[in-house]
Design a binder for these strands. Structure first.
Lengths: 160, 160
DNA sequence: AATCTAAGTTAGTCGAGTTTAACATGTTTC
DNA sequence: GAAACATGTTAAACTCGACTAACTTAGATT
C-alpha cells in the first residue's frame, strides 16, 4: 500500500457523518438516494452532492451521476466501524450514564468523532464489562444517586 | 439582558480552545502573551491575533494592541467552566477507563467540546460517584479485565 | 411520446479558521 | 539612545463545508 493510498483513509468529522448516514439508510431501505441523505442530515441537496463527490473521489463510495449511492469495500468497512462506535457510545450514555434516548443519540453523534481508536476501544470494553450480565449493584446505586441525590446503603464499610 | 448580549455567549469549539489556553497560561504564568498561546496550541501568531480579536469583540477577553491578554468577568467565568469540564473528562478517561495521562489529556481536548451541558453534568456526577471513596471493587475488576482479559472472581453469583 | 415533477448537479458565495509574508511595535543591550 | 531581536499585527490567499439559485436529468402521468 502506497503512502498515497493511506493518506485517503482518514475522513473529517463531516465526511464521517455522511458515511454513517449512508450505512444507516442502506440498512433501512436497501438503497440510498441523495434525497434521503439530505433529509436525514438536514442539509441541502447541494451539500450532499458535494459530499458524495468527495467521498467518491477518496474511494469510499460509488456514485455515478444521477445514480444511487453504494459503498466500496473500503467505504463499507469504515462505515461499519463508525456505526459500531456510534452505537457503543450511545449505549454508554443511555445505559450507564442513564441519559434519555434522544440526548444519548444526539450527543453520541457529536462525541463519536472525537474519540481516538484507543479510547473508543477502551470505552467499548467498559460498556461490555458493565453490561455483560445483569445490572451491577453499583450501577443501581448510581441510578439511585441520580434520582435522589443520596447514596444507597452499601454492604462495605468505607474509610471515612 | 438583551437578546443581543445573549447571542454572544456561545463560542465555537475553536474559540473555546483559545479561552481554555488563556486560563491555563494565566494560572501557570500569571500573565498571558500571544506568543505563549501560539506555542501551546501549535498555531501561528497570526491565528492567535485573529482569535483574540474575535474573543475581544465578543466580550470574553481584554486585549489592547501589543498588550497582554486578560479576561472579562464573563470570559473568566466561561473559561473556568470549560476548564472544569476538561479536567472532569480527563479524570474519567484516566481514572475510570484507565487510559494513560497523555492520551487522556489529548482526547479530553477533543471530546470536551462535544458534550452537551446535561451530559457533562451527568458524567461529572458519575466521576464523583465512582471516586468519592476508595476504588470500588468493580473498578478493580475492570482494571484486571483490561490487563488480563479475564473477569476476576465475584462474590455474587451471576445468572449465566 | 410530450410533458411535468421530483431528484440531482453546478456555479457562485459566505464564514470560520488557518497559513505565509510583510510590516509594526516593544524591549534589551551596548 | 540606537541597533538588534523578539513579539504582535495585517493583508491576502487557501480549505472546508455550508448555502442559494439556476440548471439538468430521470421517471411518472397523461
Amino acid at each position: 500500500m502506497t503512502d498515497k493510498t493511506k493518506k485517503y483513509d482518514k475522513l473529517s468529522s463531516n465526511m464521517e457523518d455522511y458515511l454513517e448516514t449512508v450505512i444507516v439508510l442502506k440498512q433501512k431501505d436497501g438503497v440510498v438516494r441523495a434525497k434521503d441523505i439530505s433529509e436525514l442530515m438536514n442539509v441541502t441537496k447541494a451539500s450532499v452532492s458535494c459530499a458524495l463527490k468527495t467521498l467518491s473521489r477518496k474511494g469510499f463510495v460509488l456514485h455515478e451521476k444521477y445514480g444511487h449511492v453504494d459503498f466500496t469495500p473500503k467505504g463499507e468497512e469504515l462505515a461499519n466501524k463508525i456505526k459500531k462506535r456510534h452505537d457503543m457510545l450511545t449505549k454508554f450514555l443511555k445505559n450507564i450514564l442513564g441519559l434519555d434516548n434522544k440526548l444519548s443519540e444526539k450527543d453520541a453523534c457529536k462525541i463519536e468523532h472525537a474519540l481516538s481508536t484507543k479510547t473508543s476501544k477502551r470505552l467499548a470494553k467498559f460498556v461490555e464489562f458493565v453490561q455483560s450480565s445483569e445490572t451491577p449493584e453499583w450501577l443501581k446505586g448510581f441510578n439511585f444517586y441520580i434520582k435522589t441525590g443520596k447514596r444507597s446503603e452499601c454492604k462495605y464499610k468505607r474509610k471515612k
